[in-house]
């Protein structure tokens, strides 16, 4: 029991990161119907910016703030320079462009900062307010930040006029244009916000995973799965999906270990954790193709 709770807690804290990546993917998907495969590498690149800021003497939070702002600009530039000119290109070509961006960000991070692991300090190291045996201070901090990000994003969409305009533009771009909404500008803004969210995810995961150019490649896949499990255009669903994916992943390893302990037969363990989690997620999607929280079949053709 003790161990189960521990695994669930670990699943939650991993899930927080997947949830943030999923949020970033959702930001771009709702307005463009594209999955940005380069999202993880962009987040990794942002994390290097934060690390560089910390090297030059900033503490974590100011460095994060500067990084989010810089990432916002990077996101907008990518949309303007690379994605917008290809607006009418076939869907498969755009997937290729995202793969290209992935390669480019990866290569630039490696060329500028090298491929060696770098340690990033946790900003929550002295968070001993709520001490418990299951979640370390950094894990608690990640959960808190994820909750705050989700609340901020939902509030942005629900309560601000810009958020309303973005929802309108996402649902029906032509009608939004005819209503005077500059949809193209909002698209760029959506890219900027996604890059900013990704930067937060990267900076939170770096103290756990260590910083290196390949840091986010695994996280992106989970974030992708989380976004789909939650219903790809639903921010709250994406966060829930993140936690589900995190917990499933840890439960798989836990159950495998328990089974081996009980029967002495190794069936699956940490090595198969990723594979089994993916099988479960894909099975979920096959059963419920619109995501777990969709009442009806999705409408996309």
């Amino acid at each position: 029991m003790e161990q189960l709770v521990q695994q669930l807690a670990a699943g939650l804290s991993n899930g927080a990161i997947y949830a943030l990546m999923a949020l970033a993917l959702v930001m771009i998907f709702v307005s463009t119907s594209h999955i940005n495969f380069a999202q993880g590498e962009m987040a990794m690149f942002s994390t290097y910016l934060a690390w560089a800021g910390m090297q030059s003497g900033l503490s974590f939070w100011p460095a994060l703030a500067v990084t989010v702002a810089a990432s916002f600009l990077i996101g907008i530039s990518v949309e303007r320079l690379v994605v917008r000119p290809l607006r009418d290109a076939p869907h498969l070509s755009i997937v290729v462009v995202f793969i290209a961006l992935l390669a480019i960000f990866h290569a630039f991070a490696g060329a500028i900062w090298g491929f060696a692991l770098k340690a990033v300090p946790s900003p929550f190291a002295d968070w001993t307010v709520v001490s418990n045996p299951y979640l370390g201070p950094h894990q608690l901090g990640m959960l808190a930040v994820t909750g705050m990000m989700l609340a901020a994003i939902l509030a942005f969409f629900r309560c601000t006029r810009l958020g309303l305009a973005m929802r309108a533009a996402a649902e029906n771009p032509t009608s939004a244009r005819l209503s005077g909404i500059p949809v193209d500008t909002l698209l760029a803004l959506g890219w900027g916000m996604a890059a900013g969210i990704g930067a937060v995810a990267g900076c939170l995961v770096a103290p756990v995973l260590y910083l290196e150019p390949g840091m986010m490649s695994g996280v992106l896949l989970y974030g992708f799965a989380a976004a789909l499990v939650g219903g790809i255009s639903n921010p709250a669903g994406a966060v829930a999906g993140g936690f589900i994916v995190g917990i499933v992943e840890n439960l798989v390893a836990f159950l495998g270990a328990r089974f081996e302990a009980a029967t002495g037969i190794y069936v699956f363990g940490t090595g198969e954790k990723l594979t089994l989690a993916l099988v479960i997620i894909v099975a979920m999607l096959v059963v419920k193709p619109g995501g777990l929280f969709s009442g009806h079949r999705r409408e996309r053709a």
């Binding site: 309303l164 309108a168 029906n172």
Partner: peptide
């Protein structure tokens, strides 16, 4: 051009959202 997921009130506020 209905924004189906938005409420009637929100639909009406789209044109003035940014101005």
């Amino acid at each position: 051009g209905t924004f189906r997921a938005l409420t009637v009130d929100e639909n009406l506020r789209v044109p003035t959202a940014l101005s």
